[in-house]
Simulated scan of single mutants.
Amino acid sequence: MALVSRFAQPISGSTSLVGVLGDPVRHSLSPVMHNAALKGLGLDWVYLALPTPAEHLGEVLRGLEAMDCRGLNVTLPHKQAVAALCRELSPLAERVGAVNTLVRLPNGGWLGDNTDVEGFLAPLRAGGSSWQGQRAVVLGCGGSARAVIAGLVELGCAAIQVAGRSSAHLEALLAPCRSWAKPLQGLQWTPSNRALQNALADADLVVNTTPVGMASATDPDAARRCPLSPGDLETLRPGSTVYDLIYTPRPTALLQNASARGCQSLDGLEMLVQQGAASLRLWSGLAEVPVTAMRQAALQQLKIEIKQGES
Protein backbone atom coordinates (compact mmCIF):
# COMPACT_ATOMS: atom_id res chain seq x y z
CA MET A 1 0.00 0.00 0.00
CA ALA A 2 1.38 3.39 -0.98
CA LEU A 3 1.81 6.19 1.55
CA VAL A 4 1.20 9.84 0.71
CA SER A 5 4.01 12.21 1.57
CA ARG A 6 3.70 15.90 2.39
CA PHE A 7 4.65 16.51 -1.26
CA ALA A 8 1.42 14.74 -2.34
CA GLN A 9 3.39 12.03 -4.12
CA PRO A 10 2.62 8.38 -3.47
CA ILE A 11 5.54 6.54 -1.85
CA SER A 12 5.68 2.77 -2.26
CA GLY A 13 8.17 -0.05 -2.12
CA SER A 14 9.27 0.80 -5.66
CA THR A 15 9.90 4.53 -5.02
CA SER A 16 13.49 5.54 -5.81
CA LEU A 17 15.57 7.89 -3.67
CA VAL A 18 17.41 11.09 -4.59
CA GLY A 19 18.56 13.67 -2.09
CA VAL A 20 21.03 16.23 -0.82
CA LEU A 21 23.94 15.62 1.58
CA GLY A 22 25.14 18.38 3.88
CA ASP A 23 25.65 19.43 7.47
CA PRO A 24 23.45 21.25 8.31
CA VAL A 25 20.94 20.55 5.55
CA ARG A 26 17.46 20.52 7.11
CA HIS A 27 16.96 24.13 6.03
CA SER A 28 17.47 23.29 2.34
CA LEU A 29 14.85 24.28 -0.24
CA SER A 30 16.02 21.49 -2.54
CA PRO A 31 13.51 18.85 -1.32
CA VAL A 32 10.40 20.97 -1.93
CA MET A 33 11.83 22.21 -5.24
CA HIS A 34 12.82 18.78 -6.57
CA ASN A 35 9.71 16.99 -5.36
CA ALA A 36 7.59 19.49 -7.26
CA ALA A 37 9.57 18.67 -10.39
CA LEU A 38 9.37 14.91 -9.81
CA LYS A 39 5.59 15.15 -9.44
CA GLY A 40 5.37 17.12 -12.67
CA LEU A 41 7.46 14.54 -14.49
CA GLY A 42 5.50 11.62 -13.06
CA LEU A 43 8.67 9.96 -11.76
CA ASP A 44 8.31 7.51 -8.89
CA TRP A 45 11.14 9.15 -6.97
CA VAL A 46 11.35 11.09 -3.71
CA TYR A 47 13.97 13.70 -2.83
CA LEU A 48 15.10 14.00 0.80
CA ALA A 49 17.49 16.14 2.84
CA LEU A 50 20.07 13.75 4.30
CA PRO A 51 22.10 15.25 7.20
CA THR A 52 25.64 13.90 6.86
CA PRO A 53 28.46 14.68 9.32
CA ALA A 54 31.86 14.96 7.64
CA GLU A 55 33.27 11.94 9.48
CA HIS A 56 30.51 9.72 8.02
CA LEU A 57 30.51 11.01 4.43
CA GLY A 58 32.19 7.93 2.95
CA GLU A 59 29.93 5.54 4.83
CA VAL A 60 26.82 7.40 3.73
CA LEU A 61 27.88 7.33 0.08
CA ARG A 62 28.55 3.60 0.18
CA GLY A 63 25.25 2.94 1.91
CA LEU A 64 23.26 5.02 -0.57
CA GLU A 65 24.95 3.28 -3.48
CA ALA A 66 24.00 -0.08 -1.98
CA MET A 67 20.39 1.18 -1.69
CA ASP A 68 20.38 2.02 -5.41
CA CYS A 69 20.00 5.75 -4.82
CA ARG A 70 19.45 7.46 -8.21
CA GLY A 71 21.51 10.56 -7.56
CA LEU A 72 22.62 13.12 -5.01
CA ASN A 73 23.28 16.79 -4.55
CA VAL A 74 26.11 17.81 -2.22
CA THR A 75 26.20 21.04 -0.25
CA LEU A 76 28.32 22.58 2.51
CA PRO A 77 30.70 21.49 3.87
CA HIS A 78 31.28 18.49 1.56
CA LYS A 79 31.72 19.90 -1.96
CA GLN A 80 35.49 19.49 -1.98
CA ALA A 81 35.84 16.42 0.23
CA VAL A 82 33.35 14.38 -1.80
CA ALA A 83 35.45 14.76 -4.96
CA ALA A 84 38.06 12.40 -3.52
CA LEU A 85 35.34 9.78 -2.92
CA CYS A 86 34.13 9.71 -6.53
CA ARG A 87 35.14 6.97 -8.92
CA GLU A 88 35.16 9.49 -11.77
CA LEU A 89 34.97 13.27 -12.11
CA SER A 90 33.57 15.28 -15.00
CA PRO A 91 36.15 17.54 -16.68
CA LEU A 92 34.45 20.57 -15.11
CA ALA A 93 34.39 19.10 -11.59
CA GLU A 94 38.04 18.08 -11.93
CA ARG A 95 39.05 21.57 -13.02
CA VAL A 96 36.98 23.32 -10.35
CA GLY A 97 37.92 20.88 -7.59
CA ALA A 98 34.39 20.89 -6.18
CA VAL A 99 31.41 18.58 -6.68
CA ASN A 100 27.75 19.38 -6.05
CA THR A 101 26.13 16.56 -8.05
CA LEU A 102 26.69 12.80 -7.87
CA VAL A 103 25.47 10.49 -10.63
CA ARG A 104 25.43 6.69 -10.36
CA LEU A 105 27.87 4.96 -12.69
CA PRO A 106 26.64 1.79 -14.47
CA ASN A 107 29.54 -0.29 -13.12
CA GLY A 108 29.35 1.05 -9.57
CA GLY A 109 30.56 4.14 -7.78
CA TRP A 110 29.75 7.78 -8.34
CA LEU A 111 30.48 10.30 -11.06
CA GLY A 112 31.13 13.71 -9.51
CA ASP A 113 29.91 16.70 -11.52
CA ASN A 114 29.39 20.40 -10.89
CA THR A 115 26.15 22.12 -11.89
CA ASP A 116 26.82 25.16 -9.67
CA VAL A 117 28.64 26.80 -12.58
CA GLU A 118 25.60 26.49 -14.84
CA GLY A 119 23.34 27.71 -12.04
CA PHE A 120 25.57 30.70 -11.27
CA LEU A 121 25.70 31.78 -14.91
CA ALA A 122 21.96 31.52 -15.63
CA PRO A 123 20.75 34.84 -14.11
CA LEU A 124 23.78 36.74 -15.44
CA ARG A 125 23.10 35.54 -18.98
CA ALA A 126 19.35 36.08 -18.61
CA GLY A 127 19.98 39.78 -18.04
CA GLY A 128 21.27 40.16 -21.60
CA SER A 129 24.49 41.97 -20.61
CA SER A 130 27.86 41.05 -22.02
CA TRP A 131 30.45 40.36 -19.34
CA GLN A 132 33.31 40.04 -21.79
CA GLY A 133 36.25 42.14 -20.57
CA GLN A 134 34.51 43.16 -17.32
CA ARG A 135 36.06 43.22 -13.85
CA ALA A 136 34.81 41.00 -11.01
CA VAL A 137 35.47 40.70 -7.28
CA VAL A 138 34.64 37.45 -5.46
CA LEU A 139 34.16 37.56 -1.68
CA GLY A 140 35.21 34.33 0.04
CA CYS A 141 37.33 31.35 -0.90
CA GLY A 142 35.24 28.25 -0.15
CA GLY A 143 33.87 25.57 -2.47
CA SER A 144 31.26 27.87 -4.05
CA ALA A 145 33.97 30.38 -4.98
CA ARG A 146 35.59 27.77 -7.24
CA ALA A 147 32.40 27.42 -9.27
CA VAL A 148 32.00 31.20 -9.43
CA ILE A 149 35.56 31.62 -10.73
CA ALA A 150 34.91 29.01 -13.43
CA GLY A 151 31.75 30.85 -14.43
CA LEU A 152 33.51 34.21 -14.59
CA VAL A 153 36.22 32.73 -16.81
CA GLU A 154 33.50 31.35 -19.11
CA LEU A 155 31.93 34.82 -19.27
CA GLY A 156 35.27 36.26 -20.42
CA CYS A 157 35.93 38.56 -17.46
CA ALA A 158 39.23 40.42 -17.87
CA ALA A 159 40.00 40.58 -14.13
CA ILE A 160 38.88 38.30 -11.30
CA GLN A 161 40.00 39.24 -7.80
CA VAL A 162 39.20 36.93 -4.89
CA ALA A 163 39.11 38.34 -1.35
CA GLY A 164 39.83 35.95 1.52
CA ARG A 165 40.36 36.53 5.24
CA SER A 166 42.70 33.56 5.65
CA SER A 167 45.94 33.67 3.64
CA ALA A 168 46.20 29.87 3.77
CA HIS A 169 42.64 29.29 2.54
CA LEU A 170 43.04 31.93 -0.15
CA GLU A 171 46.22 30.36 -1.50
CA ALA A 172 44.63 26.89 -1.35
CA LEU A 173 41.88 28.21 -3.62
CA LEU A 174 44.10 30.15 -6.01
CA ALA A 175 46.90 27.61 -6.53
CA PRO A 176 44.92 24.94 -8.46
CA CYS A 177 42.91 27.57 -10.39
CA ARG A 178 45.77 29.62 -11.78
CA SER A 179 46.45 27.20 -14.66
CA TRP A 180 42.98 27.76 -16.18
CA ALA A 181 41.94 31.12 -14.67
CA LYS A 182 44.55 33.50 -16.07
CA PRO A 183 42.89 36.77 -14.88
CA LEU A 184 42.85 35.50 -11.26
CA GLN A 185 44.35 37.49 -8.39
CA GLY A 186 44.08 37.26 -4.60
CA LEU A 187 43.23 40.01 -2.12
CA GLN A 188 43.79 39.86 1.62
CA TRP A 189 40.43 40.70 3.22
CA THR A 190 41.17 42.88 6.24
CA PRO A 191 39.22 45.81 7.72
CA SER A 192 39.48 48.96 5.60
CA ASN A 193 41.87 47.28 3.18
CA ARG A 194 42.62 49.93 0.56
CA ALA A 195 43.41 47.33 -2.12
CA LEU A 196 40.02 45.65 -1.61
CA GLN A 197 38.22 48.99 -1.64
CA ASN A 198 39.94 49.97 -4.88
CA ALA A 199 38.95 46.63 -6.40
CA LEU A 200 35.32 47.11 -5.31
CA ALA A 201 35.29 50.62 -6.77
CA ASP A 202 36.51 49.31 -10.15
CA ALA A 203 34.32 46.18 -10.20
CA ASP A 204 31.50 45.67 -12.66
CA LEU A 205 30.39 42.59 -10.71
CA VAL A 206 30.79 41.71 -7.01
CA VAL A 207 29.86 38.17 -5.91
CA ASN A 208 29.44 37.13 -2.28
CA THR A 209 30.16 33.42 -1.74
CA THR A 210 30.41 33.63 2.06
CA PRO A 211 27.55 32.61 4.41
CA VAL A 212 27.64 36.01 6.15
CA GLY A 213 24.12 37.43 6.12
CA MET A 214 22.31 34.10 5.87
CA ALA A 215 19.27 33.73 8.11
CA SER A 216 19.75 31.29 10.96
CA ALA A 217 17.24 29.62 13.27
CA THR A 218 19.79 29.66 16.09
CA ASP A 219 21.16 33.19 15.60
CA PRO A 220 18.52 35.93 15.25
CA ASP A 221 21.17 38.52 14.34
CA ALA A 222 22.69 36.51 11.48
CA ALA A 223 20.40 37.92 8.77
CA ARG A 224 21.34 41.51 9.67
CA ARG A 225 25.04 40.98 9.08
CA CYS A 226 26.79 42.16 5.93
CA PRO A 227 30.06 40.74 4.57
CA LEU A 228 31.23 44.24 3.60
CA SER A 229 31.96 46.98 6.13
CA PRO A 230 30.27 50.40 5.81
CA GLY A 231 33.50 51.79 4.34
CA ASP A 232 33.67 48.97 1.78
CA LEU A 233 30.02 49.48 0.83
CA GLU A 234 30.65 53.16 0.11
CA THR A 235 33.15 52.21 -2.58
CA LEU A 236 30.62 50.19 -4.64
CA ARG A 237 30.07 51.87 -7.98
CA PRO A 238 26.46 52.78 -8.79
CA GLY A 239 25.36 50.77 -11.82
CA SER A 240 27.56 47.80 -10.98
CA THR A 241 26.00 44.41 -10.16
CA VAL A 242 26.15 42.78 -6.73
CA TYR A 243 25.32 39.07 -6.68
CA ASP A 244 24.80 37.38 -3.30
CA LEU A 245 24.64 33.58 -3.46
CA ILE A 246 22.51 33.68 -0.28
CA TYR A 247 18.73 33.70 -0.80
CA THR A 248 17.47 33.85 2.81
CA PRO A 249 16.50 36.50 3.71
CA ARG A 250 15.37 38.19 0.52
CA PRO A 251 16.97 40.66 0.17
CA THR A 252 20.08 40.10 2.23
CA ALA A 253 21.71 42.96 4.11
CA LEU A 254 24.38 43.13 1.41
CA LEU A 255 21.81 43.50 -1.38
CA GLN A 256 19.83 46.09 0.59
CA ASN A 257 22.95 48.19 0.97
CA ALA A 258 23.99 47.65 -2.65
CA SER A 259 20.56 48.73 -3.92
CA ALA A 260 20.80 51.88 -1.78
CA ARG A 261 24.08 52.62 -3.60
CA GLY A 262 22.32 52.33 -6.98
CA CYS A 263 23.70 48.88 -7.79
CA GLN A 264 21.85 46.13 -9.60
CA SER A 265 21.24 43.16 -7.29
CA LEU A 266 20.87 39.40 -7.73
CA ASP A 267 20.37 36.78 -5.05
CA GLY A 268 21.10 33.06 -5.14
CA LEU A 269 17.59 31.66 -5.55
CA GLU A 270 17.75 31.39 -9.33
CA MET A 271 21.19 29.79 -9.06
CA LEU A 272 19.67 27.20 -6.71
CA VAL A 273 16.83 26.50 -9.13
CA GLN A 274 19.04 26.26 -12.22
CA GLN A 275 21.73 24.07 -10.65
CA GLY A 276 18.97 21.79 -9.35
CA ALA A 277 17.38 21.55 -12.78
CA ALA A 278 20.75 20.69 -14.30
CA SER A 279 21.26 17.95 -11.69
CA LEU A 280 17.83 16.50 -12.40
CA ARG A 281 18.63 16.34 -16.11
CA LEU A 282 21.77 14.36 -15.32
CA TRP A 283 19.95 11.87 -13.06
CA SER A 284 16.90 11.37 -15.26
CA GLY A 285 18.45 11.62 -18.72
CA LEU A 286 15.67 14.03 -19.68
CA ALA A 287 16.46 17.10 -21.78
CA GLU A 288 13.57 19.11 -20.32
CA VAL A 289 12.54 19.38 -16.66
CA PRO A 290 9.85 21.67 -15.13
CA VAL A 291 12.02 24.61 -14.09
CA THR A 292 9.02 26.89 -13.55
CA ALA A 293 7.47 24.42 -11.08
CA MET A 294 10.80 24.21 -9.23
CA ARG A 295 11.05 27.99 -8.95
CA GLN A 296 7.44 28.40 -7.81
CA ALA A 297 7.82 25.68 -5.17
CA ALA A 298 10.98 27.30 -3.80
CA LEU A 299 9.34 30.74 -3.66
CA GLN A 300 6.25 29.34 -1.96
CA GLN A 301 8.37 27.60 0.67
CA LEU A 302 10.28 30.82 1.34
CA LYS A 303 6.98 32.66 1.89
CA ILE A 304 5.89 29.99 4.37
CA GLU A 305 9.17 30.25 6.27
CA ILE A 306 8.93 34.05 6.39
CA LYS A 307 5.41 33.86 7.86
CA GLN A 308 6.56 31.29 10.41
CA GLY A 309 9.43 33.56 11.39
CA GLU A 310 7.07 36.50 11.88
CA SER A 311 4.60 34.55 14.02
Rank of each mutant, 00 (worst) to 15 (best):
A223Q: 14
T218Y: 05
P251W: 12
D116N: 11
R237G: 08
T235C: 14
A195F: 06
T190M: 06
L280T: 00
G140Q: 02
L72T: 00
P251T: 08
G276E: 04
K303R: 14
L43I: 04
V137H: 01
D232R: 01
L236N: 08
H56F: 08
S192I: 01
S192L: 10
W180F: 10
P123H: 05
S311M: 12
L102S: 07
N257I: 00
L174Q: 11
N100K: 10
L152Y: 04
N73P: 07
Q296D: 14
R224M: 08
I246D: 00
L196I: 03
C86L: 08
L29S: 11
T248P: 00
D267H: 12
R87I: 13
Q132V: 07
T15N: 10
R26A: 15
P106E: 04
E88V: 06
I304E: 15
V25W: 03
L245E: 03
S14A: 15
P183C: 09
G151N: 10
I149A: 13
G133F: 02
G63K: 02
A83N: 13
Q300P: 00
V207N: 06
G142M: 03
S14T: 15
E59Y: 02
G151M: 02
S166Q: 13
L76D: 05
E118P: 02
D23I: 03
L124W: 06
C69A: 14
A199W: 14
A159K: 13
L205Y: 03
M33P: 03
R295H: 14
E234F: 02
A163H: 09
W283H: 08
A37H: 02
W180T: 05
Q296Y: 06
G268H: 13
A181L: 05
T241P: 03
D44C: 11
L155F: 12
G309L: 07
S144I: 07
T75Y: 12
S229F: 09
L233D: 01
N107W: 14
L233S: 10
M294F: 06
P10I: 00
L61F: 05
P24H: 05
S16P: 00
D244M: 07
L102E: 09
D221I: 00
Q300W: 02
M33E: 04
R178C: 10
S192T: 07
A217Q: 15
E310L: 15
G22R: 08
L173N: 13
M1K: 05
A36R: 03
A168D: 12
L92N: 02
A253M: 10
E59I: 05
M67Y: 11
G119R: 00
L43K: 11
V74I: 14
A217Y: 13
T190N: 03
T210M: 08
L38P: 07
N193A: 15
S14I: 09
T115K: 04
N73Q: 12
